[in-house]
């Protein structure tokens, strides 16, 4: 509407909006600044001096690399798991009608609605009850619970928009089940899966709560940071790592946002 486009917002509203945005993002900026401070015992404002040496120090710390490696592996595997399970589940729920369909769809989404601590406790007691030793795989399982939801949500939305007659048309033209999936279904849900996968990866990468309950001796990156904060030693190293985490999680989310937006556009006007 024209009035919405041209109307000038009152000054007070502008200030409030700016204030809100600053409140959200200034602290993140602070983390970046402290990654370059010369003071390594406490966070002191303004920083007494700026240096790049913490980048080198971080680079040479094996514990950082270990934690980072673990986090990437956990995130990659739980995302892969979620991609398969989430897509299958979304296909079933959106394609066919069966008894208990709504229940299945609710139960799949539930883990993300539940507080992480509940999921964590539940998994921990289940693991100990079943005598499963805490390991890399228990972390992966914990993360997969919410990664599946993210993939499922993205895939189910796209499946609903993809007309069922496309699959029939493909079958009609001589493509069997696998060929139909490869040539028709996958290209149509591809961007949704990529977006879901990236979100799942980002979620897994900075997950703390479920991880603390499902990890044994392993330290993922967020857990490592939490531990670093408790014992102050080369504090800015944590900030450097934090900066990396922001970048690693922010970029996929941004990419996912653009991918799904383009996906909407395919069916639309293409302006």
């Amino acid at each position: 509407m024209r009035s919405d486009r041209n109307g000038k917002a009152p000054l007070g509203l502008k200030i409030a909006a700016a204030g809100g945005l600053l409140f959200l993002h200034l602290p993140i900026l602070l983390i970046f600044v402290y990654a370059f401070t010369t003071e390594d015992k406490s966070y002191q404002w303004p920083p007494p001096g700026l240096t790049l040496k913490w980048l080198a120090v971080t680079w040479n710390r094996p514990d950082v690399w270990q934690a980072l490696g673990l986090s990437v592996r956990v995130a990659a595997i739980s995302t892969a798991l979620a991609l398969v399970l989430g897509t299958l589940c979304a296909a079933a729920v959106s394609r066919t009608k069966f008894f208990g369909r709504e229940t299945v769809s609710l139960l799949v989404i539930l883990p993300i609605a539940l507080p992480g601590i509940i999921t964590g406790i539940a998994l921990r007691s289940a693991f100990s009850l079943a005598d499963i030793p805490y390991s890399f795989w228990t972390i992966v399982l914990g993360h997969a619970t919410f990664c599946v939801v993210v993939v499922y949500n993205n895939a189910v939305a796209r499946f609903r928009r993809t007309s069922g007659s496309l699959i029939e048309a493909s079958m009609d033209l001589g493509a069997d089940g696998f060929q139909t999936f490869r040539h028709v279904v996958l290209p149509n849900i591809g961007t949704a899966l990529l977006a879901g996968g990236m979100l799942a990866f980002a979620l897994s990468f900075d997950e703390v709560i479920v991880t603390t309950f499902t990890a044994g001796q392993q330290t993922t990156l967020p857990i490592w940071m939490l531990e670093e904060l408790v014992r102050p030693r080369q504090r800015p190293v944590t900030n450097v790592v934090a900066m990396v985490v922001v970048l690693v999680t922010f970029l996929p989310i941004l990419a996912a946002y653009y991918l799904t937006r383009d996906g909407d556009r395919i069916a639309g006007s293409g302006k």
Binding site: S163, S165, L166, E168, A169, S170, M171, D172, L173, G174, A175, D176, V184, P187, N188, I266, A267
Partner: peptide, 20 residues
């Protein structure tokens, strides 16, 4: 015979053209 083995083709009401 499944649809993909039948020498019969369909023109769908919604056309069902592959958008990609």
């Amino acid at each position: 015979l499944p649809p993909y083995r039948r020498p019969v083709n369909t023109v769908f009401q919604s056309y069902a053209l592959f958008p990609h």
